[in-house]
Design a protein around this nucleic acid. Structure first.
Length: 669
DNA sequence: AATTGCTAAGTTTTT
DNA sequence: CTTAGCAATT
């Protein structure tokens, strides 16, 4: 007991209350910077220390791998790595993937299904849209893709899609088409033995709805469930949690309704706003002491967010002192904005000795990063743009992964189409169309159709030759990846066999690009090797799962902020992070709030976005607006963001640097 | 099969 | 101003 008290030491009364209320449903309303991760980890430690459950009976769900890794790390620090290991700390997606790999056959999904990434899914959709002749709506496969994704997040089957997402004249036509496209996309996925990201969750829910045995198995595995960022849960995740917690009701959710900024993706803030409706016996604890920011920043943030009507009232406070007033800087245009921001950065550095990594430039939309990149580069200041292209979405990486997917799942159509004629084997469109028709006629897989074409010699000589080659290659590597050699050796053999190096040299713009792309290929090989080393029984399928869900930092460039540079990112990606000095740029009507949000009347979410931006700052926030900005290729007058006007004047200090040609003087202390 | 030119549109993106 | 998607060329 004495030791257990030690765990809870160093928590404030509310935090402690949250950590030791273990019985029944708990809602922790954790304001920005109020130490919520601390509460979750301490709560887990408390549960285990008092032997309320075995480590393996505790489930903690997060949205990102990064958050999961961080949580595991911090729990390990509290109770030791060994005890922490069996705790299930996982993203929704990887937990569901595990469930499906185990039980999917109960709802008619083959166990070795592929995960269709964003672009795999788009490949399938392109064909669907093609076949349905839906082009005349003017909507691209990508648009349908987001609409379908939103529908799945809302738990809507093809016949049940509700309006949303698009508000334009062609909307009617588009909405007429959506169910058909959605339905056909589903059958294409099924035929390809693939699930997209959203399916991982949705199909798990369907499984639990339809199969009591599977549900019971999953349900009885856990005695305590904790959920981070609950305000971001969508209808499917909500359903999953309800099912899982139905019996013991030991569900602890942590979140902040004021930081709900993903409604457009199907997140439903009602889940957190109406928690007690679903769990009337719930204990509700508010964490409102902020350990991050100055009073000035919090007062500003409180004032702004107070303009939202549907929310849980809370006022963040801080013991860190007033700090400096928020600087509000008006400049002529976006060019001046970047230059002025740079001046302020230098000025703050001079005064405080801050390092480059202490600064973040936050913007509403990615396009805004360009000018800052250029300006920073010219000034020789190191920077990191967060949120670039995903490693696994790069052409060369997709090529290699697609080979692996076809080897692992012969029905994977998107992957198949990608590699069947790469390198060139003379298998062109005409042959492929024939193969497709054959598939549909005989309801067989693409691979089987190829065999048939081969047997019947029903294709140009060249193509027959190529098909034979291709099928032989797949056959050989299916065996090789199963046994006989390490995954790494098998992959290296494959890359050599298809002469991918030569392929890159032939198809790249120059030797420099060829090299860069080859390095990405090598990175995949390294990733396989790393996976093999860290896994007890490594399999090809296991590696593919990891590569889709565990965006391992060695794979992608998401979190390279350790490097000593200024961070450039969207406000969305900044959620959960903090910086001593934050520059919010483009505080203008049409940008933040975004014009589409004004049109669709979703200003509350935009306000929360601004709130998130402000509360990232520890010591100081600097807000920028222009009086004229180039938008849609034209220079247009800009108007101050309403959110800026919502900050009490006594917290602000205004600076006009809007005269052109004058060159603004260095900022004043 | 790869390149070129036209048109239309223009957020945010944890997996 | 970009960029993506598509059609029409070579």
């Amino acid at each position: 007991m004495a030791r257990s008290r030690r765990f809870l030491d160093g928590l404030n009364p509310q935090q402690r209350e949250a950590a030791r209320t273990t019985d029944g449903p708990v809602l922790v309303l954790a304001g920005a910077g109020s130490g919520k991760t601390r509460v979750i980890t301490q709560r887990i430690a408390h549960i285990l220390h008092n032997q309320l459950a075995e480590p393996s009976e505790v489930l903690a769900v997060t949205f990102t791998n990064k958050a999961a890794a961080e949580m595991r790390e911090r729990v390990s620090q509290l109770i030791g790595k060994g005890d922490a290991k069996p705790i299930v700390i996982s993203t929704f997606h990887s937990y569901c993937l595990k469930v499906l790999r185990q039980h999917a056959e109960r709802i008619g999904i083959r166990k070795n299904f592929s995960i269709a990434g964003e672009s795999d899914a788009r490949t399938l959709l392109r064909r669907v849209v093609d076949e349905l002749n839906t082009h005349d709506t003017g909507y691209s496969p990508g648009t349908f893709q987001s609409a379908i994704s939103l529908a799945k997040n809302r738990c809507e089957a093809p016949g049940e899609t509700k309006p949303g997402l698009i508000t334009r004249e062609t909307q009617v036509k588009y909405e007429e088409q959506l169910p058909a496209v959605y339905e056909k996309y589903e059958s294409a996925l099924r035929a390809a033995n693939s699930l997209d990201f959203d399916d991982l969750l949705l199909q798990t829910l369907r499984l639990w709805e339809r199969d009591a045995v599977a549900l019971d198995l999953c349900r009885s595995a856990f005695k305590f469930i904790m959920v981070d960022e609950y305000q971001d849960t969508n209808a499917v995740q909500y359903g999953l949690l309800r099912k899982l917690a139905e019996e013991h009701r030991n569900l602890c959710v942590v979140g902040d309704d004021d930081q709900s900024i993903y409604a457009w993706r199907g997140a439903d803030p009602k889940n957190i706003l109406e928690f007690e409706r679903d769990y009337p016996e719930a204990k509700i604890i508010t964490l409102d002491q902020n350990y991050r920011s100055t009073e000035t920043i919090l007062n500003a943030a409180n004032a702004v967010i107070g303009n939202n009507s549907v929310r849980r009232e809370k006022k963040l406070w801080s013991a860190l002192g007033k700090g400096r007033a928020i600087d509000w800087i008006t400049v002529a245009d976006e060019d001046a904005e970047a230059k002025e921001a740079l001046k302020w950065l230098r000025y703050i550095q001079e005064k405080t000795g801050a390092r480059y990594r202490d600064f973040a430039f936050l913007y509403r939309s990615n396009q805004q990063s360009r000018i800052f990149e250029i300006t920073l580069r010219q000034a020789g200041i190191p920077y990191v743009v967060v949120g670039g292209q995903d490693f696994f979405e790069r052409t060369e990486v997709r090529d290699i992964i697609s080979y692996l997917k076809v080897i692992s799942n012969p029905r994977d159509e998107a992957a198949f189409l990608r590699v069947v004629n790469m390198p060139r084997r003379g298998i062109g469109d005409v042959t492929l169309h024939r193969v497709h028709d054959l598939c549909r006629e005989r309801k067989c897989s693409l691979g089987q159709a190829l065999h048939t074409v081969l047997q019947e010699g029903d294709a140009p000589k060249q193509a027959v030759q190529g098909i034979r080659q291709f099928l032989g290659l797949l056959q050989r590597y299916r065996e090789r990846f199963k046994e006989g050699s390490t995954l790494r050796e098998a992959l290296e053999g494959l890359v050599t066999d298809i002469d991918y190096h030569g392929e890159l040299e032939r198809n790249s713009r120059g030797p420099q690009q060829a090299l860069a792309r080859w390095q990405n290929v090598e990175a995949v090989v390294n990733a396989v090797a790393a996976y093999e080393e860290n896994t007890e029984t490594p399999t090809l399928a296991g590696f593919l799962d990891e590569s889709h869900l565990n965006a391992d930092p060695t794979f992608n460039n998401r979190d390279k902020r350790k490097q000593a540079g200024v961070t450039l990112m969207t406000v969305h990606s900044a959620k959960g992070l903090e910086f001593p000095f934050v520059f919010v740029v483009g505080c203008e009507e049409g940008l933040l709030p975004h014009e589409n949000a004004i049109r669709d009347n979703t200003l509350d979410e935009e306000r929360r976005l601004f709130y998130v931006a402000l509360t990232r700052a520890k010591r100081h926030a600097t807000l920028f607006e222009t009086i004229s900005r180039v938008r849609h290729g034209k220079e247009r007058p800009a108007k101050t963001s309403r959110f800026l006007e919502e900050i009490p004047a006594d917290l602000l200090k205004r600076h006009f640097r809007a005269q052109r040609d004058m060159g603004s003087p260095a900022p004043q202390g």
